[in-house]
Amino acid sequence: MKLLIADDETLIREAILARLKKGNYAFDEIFLAADGLEAWDIARRERPEIIITDVQMDGMTGLSLIQSCQNAHIPASIIVISGYAEFEYVQDAMYHDACCYLLKPITQESLFDALEKALAKQAVHTRLSRLQNDTTNLSFGILPTKHGSPQEPESPLSVTEQARRYLTEHYREPVSIETLAEYLHLNPRYFSTLFKKKEGVSPLDYLTRIRMEAAKDLLRDTDIPASEVSYLVGYEDPRYFYKVFKKYTGQTPTNFRS
């Protein structure tokens, strides 16, 4: 596992390194960056699993680094370092999927706690990636058309298998029957009927199942606030996420976690 430490203060970078040794964290490689642009160059080249970044750096801010990693599909767990005066930046960073933050001055206890959360988040990501890989080992064939009856697929993947794959890979994004049907080149009503006949549930109910199982993993294995979990699994409105989660599990996210 690779770790990137990005901070324009040499003393902070060295302090983090020293505390990592005390905690016996076994990273395969640790990279140091003295500014945001250097951090982005390392992140793009090495794709570290965990990034510790100051929120304010020359060249590129920590928030810009987070957004750049997202755009490049670098699934790093990101820990943000900040001072009290920069808390608005921290709120933005957390909204953009930062794992947690460290408030200056950084203590050994706060560093270790943040690292444990980041490692737990990476473990969840690894499990979800394996789940996705289990459903995507087969290649695509010729897709059916919107007009007329769908042709017999030449690929081992059926229409419903292709839909399940899409939902597994894109559950964090806004998804509708129309976007799914367009992706598969099918009439939305026909696609919905076909999927429910094969799977026993509607495509959107299947999507909810994926999101709820991912949410359960995050609530069980991390300390990420439930409001942030809602964003991580595709819900913009935390209140709606709480409602769906309770209907699905019979518990509120808080009760499930406890």
Rank of each mutant, 00 (worst) to 15 (best):
N187Y: 08
E109P: 00
A72C: 07
M94A: 03
S68H: 13
I142S: 13
H147Q: 13
V244H: 03
G23N: 09
D97M: 07
A39D: 07
L32V: 09
D8C: 05
K2G: 05
L128C: 02
G36N: 04
D41E: 14
Y248R: 01
R13H: 01
Q122S: 08
L194R: 11
D7L: 04
Q122K: 14
R209V: 01
L167V: 13
T135L: 14
L131E: 13
F140N: 10
D54A: 13
S149L: 13
P150I: 11
Y101M: 04
N137H: 14
T254L: 10
V124H: 06
L103E: 08
G141V: 08
L11F: 10
D217W: 10
M57T: 02
S155V: 03
S68A: 15
T179L: 12
E173S: 12
N137Q: 09
N255P: 00
L17H: 04
T160D: 12
T193M: 07
H147P: 00
K216S: 11
P75H: 04
A93F: 10
D97G: 11
A118D: 04
Y183H: 10
R189C: 00
E169W: 01
L103I: 14
E154S: 12
Y248E: 14
E182L: 08
V124A: 06
S68G: 13
L111P: 11
T193I: 02
Q91R: 12
T10N: 08
E29M: 04
D54P: 01
M1G: 12
E9K: 11
M1W: 02
E182Y: 05
L194M: 14
E213D: 14
A214V: 07
Y242K: 12
E154P: 00
F256A: 05
S155Y: 01
E14I: 08
F27Q: 04
E38M: 09
G36Q: 02
R172G: 00
S149C: 01
I52T: 08
G250K: 07
P48G: 09
N133K: 15
T53E: 07
Y84L: 11
N133A: 15
I224S: 02
D7E: 11
E152N: 06
E169Y: 06
E178T: 12
H73G: 00
L138N: 03
I78N: 05
R239G: 06
G200H: 06
M60R: 13
Y166M: 08
S77W: 04
S139E: 08
L167S: 06
T252H: 04
A163G: 07
A18T: 09
E38N: 05
T53W: 04
I51Q: 06
R130M: 13
Q108K: 08
D58G: 13
C69W: 00
E109D: 14
H185I: 00
L218Q: 05
V159N: 06
D97A: 14
V55A: 11
P48Q: 05
G148W: 10
V159E: 10
D217K: 13
H125T: 11
T249K: 12
T135S: 03
F140S: 09
K216A: 10
H73L: 12
T10Q: 12
T222E: 07
D7P: 05
K243V: 05
A72H: 12
L167Y: 02
F112P: 02
L3T: 08
D217P: 00
R47S: 05
S192Y: 03
R164K: 15
T61M: 02
A43V: 02
V229R: 11
H125F: 13
S155K: 02
Y206A: 13
D92P: 00
L186K: 14
I16G: 01
I12N: 03
